[in-house]
Amino acid sequence: MKRQKRDMNSRAFDKGYQAGVTGRSVDFCPHENSAHRQSWLCGWREGRADQWDGLTGVSGVHKLRTL
């Protein structure tokens, strides 16, 4: 848990990915810091691509990271 809290870029990417897979808009990015925002946007783009490819629900479970 502590490692996840320390690496904010990785966490921003994961949250962006989750937002992209669920179909949320890019306007909901919560980060002001440019590095964290960029990580969130990269995750969002990858999540949207996976949603378009049909990797949602059970078919996209293999894309989740294990902690």
Rank of each mutant, 00 (worst) to 15 (best):
L55R: 11
N9V: 08
H62V: 01
G57K: 14
M1G: 15
M8K: 10
L41R: 05
R11M: 12
G20H: 02
H31G: 06
G43W: 00
S59R: 15
R11D: 11
W52A: 09
K5G: 13
R65S: 12
Q4C: 05
S10P: 00
G60L: 09
G23T: 04
S25G: 06
G57F: 10
D27A: 09
S25A: 09
A49G: 07
R48A: 12
M1C: 04
R24H: 12
R6E: 10
T56E: 10
R6T: 05
V61A: 08
Y17E: 02
G16V: 05
M8Y: 01
S59N: 14
K63E: 06
G16D: 00
M1S: 12
G54E: 07
R24K: 14
A49W: 02
D14Y: 03
Q51Y: 13
E32A: 09
W40K: 01
S59D: 14
C42M: 15
M8T: 09
W52E: 12
Q51P: 02
N9L: 04
S34H: 07
K2G: 10
L41M: 15
D50K: 13
R65P: 05
N33H: 03
T22Y: 01
K15G: 00
G47T: 11
P30F: 07
E46Q: 15
V58H: 13
N33C: 09
S39C: 07
C29Y: 08
E32T: 08
L55T: 03
R24N: 08
W52Y: 08
R6M: 04
A12S: 11
S39K: 02
A19I: 05
M1H: 05
H31R: 03
L41W: 00
T56K: 09
D53E: 13
G54V: 08
G16A: 11
S59K: 15
M1R: 06
Q4D: 08
L64Q: 13
H31I: 04
R3W: 07
G47F: 03
H31P: 01
